[in-house]
């Protein structure tokens, strides 16, 4: 449903809705993934799945990933397709909303960054920087459901 839910990321509790992000992504998933020729590589799941991240580290890695998508990914995903661009805008603006709430946990020190989450995040950045920026951005956007599934 499109309703707000309480997400628990370790000690951080955030009331938010991922339904609209997922709806926006589902509408363009096939289009975005068709632009990603290298299907054997993953940005988020290589070498280890996000599911390996321990609970205390969930908030930190989530916060870093939302920063990653806002700062690095969306801006390199402009396409020639107006519908796709509008959906990417919806997702990007929704990410800003969620990131703001996650930021509140940071301020309240409920979002501790352990060694493991930093290691995982560095690996994701290395995967990203190993490709040219447009391919990396499109691949990352195409993996959004991996992030959403893990969050939920």
């Amino acid at each position: 449903t499109a309703g707000n839910r309480i997400f628990h990321f370790g000690a951080c509790k955030v009331s938010m809705s991922t339904a609209e992000i997922r709806a926006g992504f589902t509408a363009i998933k096939a289009n975005i993934q068709s632009r990603d020729p290298i299907r054997t590589l993953s940005i988020l799941s290589h070498p280890h799945s996000l599911h390996k991240v321990k609970s205390p580290d969930r908030c930190c890695i989530t916060h870093h990933l939302f920063n990653f998508y806002v700062d690095k990914v969306f801006k390199h995903c402009t396409t020639e397709d107006s519908f796709v661009n509008r959906k990417i805008s919806s997702i990007a603006n929704s990410f800003l909303s969620v990131r703001r709430k996650l930021g509140q946990c940071h301020e309240q020190n409920n979002c501790v960054c352990g060694e493991e989450s930093m290691e995982k995040y560095k690996q994701i950045l290395a995967n990203y920087e190993g490709l040219n920026v447009t391919s990396a951005a499109m691949k990352s956007l195409g993996e959004l459901d991996i992030l959403l599934d893990w969050m939920e």
Binding site: V70, D71, F74, K75, S82, F83, N85, R86, S89, A92, N93, F95, L96
Partner: peptide, 19 residues
């Protein structure tokens, strides 16, 4: 055309047409 907070803060204040 519309412009969200993301476009203002991260995408050079770009505008998006509504087809």
């Amino acid at each position: 055309e519309f412009q969200g907070e993301y476009e203002r803060e991260y995408a050079n204040e770009s505008w998006i047409p509504i087809s």
